[in-house]
């Protein structure tokens, strides 16, 4: 198993500032994005991402490639930190909190509609059991392979697929109208 991060982790563990900087550039945006989707809170997502890297710096001097890819280990740490925070609080009433809608050119009406959709999808994701949500996060958003995602969650590929399928079924039911709108947009069919 080739770990593309192994050299950087080893060097960062030995005190190499450039290696540390390269790891941050490569992984920090994904860690922040994961935290935002899991927690619906920008500030908490940054806290989680920072905590992930503090653990990386702590563990890097002892890092031994082979047991698990660095990326897998990192995602596992991030998800566990999110689980801890989710357990400590109820989901915020506004699942859209902290989200950035990258649509600066849209009209006010379109922007409002886009925010509504994002909020609705966020709320539907938040309703999923943690493991289903994590499986979707890893495969759909983080774009890990099924094997890497299963390793991250410490389950078999079949169990991962079961989590994904159940999660997607629940989302499909909860988001039927949003999905229909988006298909309508893509087809050029006007929305009602």
């Amino acid at each position: 198993m080739i770990d593309p991060d192994a050299d950087l982790v080893r060097s960062a563990g030995a005190g190499d500032a450039q290696a540390a900087s390269a790891l941050v550039r490569r992984h920090l945006p994904r860690m922040v994005a994961l935290g935002r989707r899991m927690l619906n809170d920008a500030a908490e997502a940054e806290d989680v991402a920072q905590e992930v890297f503090l653990r990386v710096w702590r563990e890097a001097p002892r890092w031994k490639p082979g047991a698990a890819k660095f990326e897998t280990w990192m995602h596992r740490v991030a998800l566990n930190l999110c689980y801890d925070r989710l357990r400590r609080r109820r989901e915020k009433s506004d699942p859209d909190a902290g989200l950035y809608v990258a649509d600066g050119a849209a009209s006010a009406g379109d922007a409002w509609l886009a925010r509504q959709r994002v909020a609705k999808v966020g709320a539907a994701l938040a309703q999923l059991p943690e493991r289903q949500r994590s499986a979707i996060e890893l495969v759909h958003f983080q774009e890990l392979t099924n094997i890497a995602a299963a390793e991250t969650l410490e389950i078999s590929v079949e169990a991962l697929e079961s989590l994904l399928a159940r999660g997607r079924r629940a989302l499909k039911a909860a988001l039927a109208d949003v999905a229909q709108d988006l298909i309508g947009d893509a087809d050029g069919v006007p929305r009602v």
């Binding site: 922040v32 503090l54 950035y100 886009a114 999808v121 997607r168 989302l171």
Partner: peptide
């Protein structure tokens, strides 16, 4: 359709420089 709905949750927020600086 479901993929597209999920796609709306792609977070494209820039990572704050301050956060990178704190971590480094």
């Amino acid at each position: 359709a479901l993929d597209a709905a999920l796609g709306t949750r792609r977070v494209e927020a820039p990572t704050p420089d301050l956060l990178s600086a704190r971590i480094l």
